[in-house]
Design a binder for these strands. Structure first.
Lengths: 140, 140
DNA sequence: TTAAGTGCAAATTATTTGCAGTAAG
DNA sequence: CTTACTGCAAATAATTTGCACTTAA
């Protein structure tokens, strides 16, 4: 079900989201979900990946694309540190590990998190999402 | 137990943390915990508060002070949006509501959150803290 | 052929830093 | 006296934006 994203994620997928399947977007999309794996990227890391792949995409377009993809629900922004924006190809509510020293972000095993009770949204509001970030520091 | 902070939070408290009790820090400390209430502030909102109170504190010093206070464990930084840093006078692990439209941050009732199971830290690491942010969007 | 997308460079926003002056121990 | 702190202004970092050019429909 999530694997299908990798296949859908071509011209067709982009069109269905109202986005033109440009060369740049297709290149980025393939880097993000080309192999069906989930990824955590920053604008900078993704930009470097495009360069390593030999794709010509400007940093500005990487930023624009990350934003567009997030707006149409293809990516989810994770807020772990005030300075850099991280984006996750897994858009479901799931916990993250964040290594405070290296700045690395990774999924935490979702099945090990059990929220037995959650504060209800105040009236007039609804929950848009719940972020659980487990911050780690190296031991020893 | 938390109320006592307000009283402690004077020259004595600052000294015990290795910080000189300067006029600026005392002014900021009193704005933060002067009445024993917990607060969520940004550098900007705190700076405005000092001005409203008639205290002469520069914005740079507000930033420096927020950082020092966080380092000695008097404040806790909460990461809710990529652009602005929020600081909480309540330094315990507790959930937050974040209003996506207004950017307001507030405590969620801690007793309504029950984490029955939490992913264990990978080996070589230990959990420094767990952030739970419940993002809200206005309904209607 | 026209509306959307790209890319550069300049602008913005939040924050940090260098350093000369000021104040606390 | 000596070292930490303050405040300005300049520097930095991440991201956004204006606008001329290009590309997809």
């Amino acid at each position: 079900m999530h694997h299908s994203q990798a296949k859908e994620m071509g011209a067709r997928w982009l069109e269905s989201a109202g986005l033109r399947p440009t060369k740049q977007r297709l290149a980025i999309a393939s880097l993000l979900v080309g192999d069906g794996q989930h990824r955590h990227v920053t604008a900078e890391s993704l930009f470097e990946a495009t360069q390593a792949a030999g794709d010509k995409v400007s940093l500005a377009t990487v930023y624009n694309t990350l934003r567009s993809f997030s707006e149409v629900g293809f990516l989810r922004e994770i807020l772990v540190n005030g300075t850099k924006g991280y984006f996750d190809t897994n858009t479901t509510n799931h916990p993250h590990f964040f290594w405070e020293d290296t700045g690395q972000l990774q999924d935490a095993p979702e099945e090990d998190l059990e929220i037995a009770a959650l504060p209800a949204a105040p009236k007039g509001a609804e929950i848009s999402k719940v972020d659980v970030v487990i911050r780690l520091r190296s031991k020893g």
